[in-house]
Computed example of a mutant assay.
Amino acid sequence: MTARLVNLAAVACTAALLWAGSSAAQTFSDAFAGFGSNSAEPIEIEATELQVEDKTNSATFVGDVVVSQGDTQLKTQRLRVFYDGQPGGNVQQQISRLEAQGRVFISAKDQTATGDQASFDMNRQVMVMTGREVVLSQGPNVVVGNKLTVDLKTGKADLEAPSSGRVRVLIQPNSVGNGQ
């Protein structure tokens, strides 16, 4: 049976301590709003190798991939980018989905998330990160499970535990309200 943290916001004490901090603090979903959702900021991608597949409207970046947009950065070993539009057509094609594999690390300001795979669906505005351990942290506070689903429009976050385990939360005393 899978233990489930149905809505981090519903667990008011934990969520408030871990992600809110203060009314002006940035939430997890704000920080990781998905690459491509902020059209004012360019997306920069670096990798050892790039393979473009026009017929499938995709590109695959391999080897120490680093993706940056504004304050958000993603690092992984393999990233597949899917885009909308006609193959070989409009240069202004929109990214529709990102799929990262191979020890995924996402950071934004003082928040980080790590897992084995992650996908961003830009059209639905949903991020899913999975792995043996999915670790979320903000400052000294940590939440651990094995599947994280974030609705980037509503801020709802579901964190599931492994079938043989439980979701774990570590909140450091006095870490909230002190700028951390």
Rank of each mutant, 00 (worst) to 15 (best):
G155M: 12
K153L: 11
A108C: 03
G115E: 08
Q92I: 01
S164V: 05
V104A: 07
D151W: 06
Q93P: 00
M127N: 05
A161V: 11
S107F: 07
G115I: 00
V134I: 08
Q125C: 12
R132W: 09
G88T: 14
V126F: 08
L98N: 00
A118S: 03
R132M: 14
K147T: 02
D110W: 00
T149H: 07
Q138V: 09
L136V: 08
V142K: 01
V143Y: 04
N90A: 14
N90Q: 10
T114V: 02
G165W: 12
L98F: 12
Q86V: 15
P87C: 15
V91F: 12
N123W: 05
V126Y: 09
K147C: 04
E133S: 15
Q101N: 09
A113W: 01
S107P: 02
M129P: 03
A108D: 03
A113P: 01
R97Q: 05
V134G: 10
Q117P: 07
K153M: 09
K156M: 08
T154P: 06
Q117V: 03
E160C: 06
L148C: 04
P162M: 07
G145E: 05
V144D: 14
G131I: 12
G165E: 13
G165C: 14
P87E: 15
R132P: 03
G89M: 14
V134D: 12
Q111S: 04
T112M: 00
A113I: 15
E99A: 02
Q111N: 03
G165I: 10
A157K: 06
R97F: 05
D151K: 08
G88V: 15
V128A: 14
M122E: 15
K156W: 04
K156R: 09
G155L: 12
I95A: 03
R132I: 13
T154F: 06
P162A: 09
P140F: 07
S119Y: 06
V126H: 07
T149Q: 10
Q93M: 12
E133A: 14
K156T: 10
L136A: 09
E99N: 01
A161F: 06
V150P: 05
Q101H: 04
P87H: 14
F120V: 15
G155W: 07
Q111I: 02
N141M: 07
I95W: 01
Q101P: 00
G131D: 11
G131N: 10
K153Q: 10
V128G: 13
D158C: 10
A161L: 08
A108H: 01
Q94R: 03
G85P: 03
E99L: 04
D116H: 03
G102P: 00
Q125R: 12
M127H: 06
V142S: 02
Q86E: 15
L148W: 07
D151N: 13
G139K: 04
Q92D: 15
M122I: 15
S163R: 11
